[in-house]
Computed example of a mutant assay.
Amino acid sequence: MSTPLVRLFRRTGGRLTPVVIFFEILLVLAAVLITWFAVYVLYRLVNDES
């Protein structure tokens, strides 16, 4: 069993297309942004000085 990304990698001769790379980068950026926001919210909850 192979994932769609593995099948695409094999079908394109071992090369990832620029579109796939672009969306992989977007996925990583979204994950980093979500993680940063979650940590920031927790920080603000713990250090609330009001």
Rank of each mutant, 00 (worst) to 15 (best):
S50Y: 04
V39A: 13
F23P: 00
V32I: 15
L33F: 07
V46A: 10
G13N: 14
R7G: 00
S50N: 05
L33R: 02
L45Q: 04
L45S: 05
V19E: 15
L33C: 03
S50V: 12
V20M: 10
D48M: 05
R10C: 03
I21G: 03
E49N: 09
T12F: 14
G13Y: 01
L16P: 01
T17A: 14
V46E: 05
V20C: 10
V28N: 02
R10M: 12
I25W: 11
Y40H: 11
F22K: 10
E49R: 10
Y40A: 14
R11A: 15
E49F: 08
A30Q: 06
S50E: 11
T35W: 15
R44C: 05
S2P: 00
I25V: 15
G13T: 12
L42H: 00
V28Q: 03
F22H: 08
L16D: 05
F9K: 14
R7F: 01
R7A: 06
T3R: 02
R7E: 10
I25C: 09
E24S: 13
T35D: 15
Y43R: 07
V28D: 00
N47M: 08
V20Q: 13
F23I: 10
I25M: 12
L5C: 04
V28M: 08
R15D: 01
R15M: 08
G13H: 09
V39Y: 03
V32P: 01
L16S: 06
V6C: 04
G13D: 11
L27E: 03
R15W: 01
R10D: 04
G14T: 11
D48A: 12
R15Q: 07
L5I: 13
A31I: 13
F9I: 09
E49P: 03
A38M: 06
L45H: 01
L26W: 00
V46I: 14
L29V: 07
R15A: 08
T35I: 15
L27F: 08
L33M: 03
L5R: 02
F37V: 08
W36V: 11
L42K: 00
D48F: 11
T17R: 15
F23R: 12
L16E: 04
S2K: 01
I21M: 12
T3K: 02
R11Y: 06
R15N: 05
I25E: 10
F22A: 10
R7C: 01
L26G: 02
T35P: 04
G13E: 10
E49G: 06
G13P: 06
V46M: 05
F9A: 12
A30D: 03
F23V: 11
F9V: 09
L16W: 09
V32G: 04
E49K: 09
A31H: 02
T17Y: 08
